[in-house]
């Protein structure tokens, strides 16, 4: 099987995963933008973490970065 056929075969299964991850990323960024202060890292630092740390970036932000 070539890589492409694998991809097309599993695509219906990959889409929900990608959507969930993307949704989480967007939710984290929106939350970050609305916030004046963050904990642990400055705002731009959290943007980097959210965008570049796959899956766990947004989660780590939600747990540790939100400063109310």
């Amino acid at each position: 099987m070539s890589d492409l056929t694998i991809l097309t075969k599993y695509l219906p299964l990959l889409i929900p995963i990608a959507l969930l991850q993307f949704g989480l990323l967007v939710a984290a960024l929106v939350d970050l933008m609305k916030r004046e202060n963050t904990k642990g890292l400055p705002k731009w630092g959290w943007i980097l973490v959210i965008v570049f740390v796959n899956l766990f970036g947004p989660i780590i932000y939600f747990i540790f970065g939100r400063d109310e």
């Binding site: 694998i6 599993y10 299964l13 899956l55 939600f62």
Partner: peptide
Amino acid sequence: RTRRFMIAIVVLVLFGMTSPLLAKMTPQ
């Protein structure tokens, strides 16, 4: 409010989806 409910669901659901997928695709 602290998003813990959502985080727990998203994290575990993602692993619920990816675990069988990873198992299937390990050889590839």
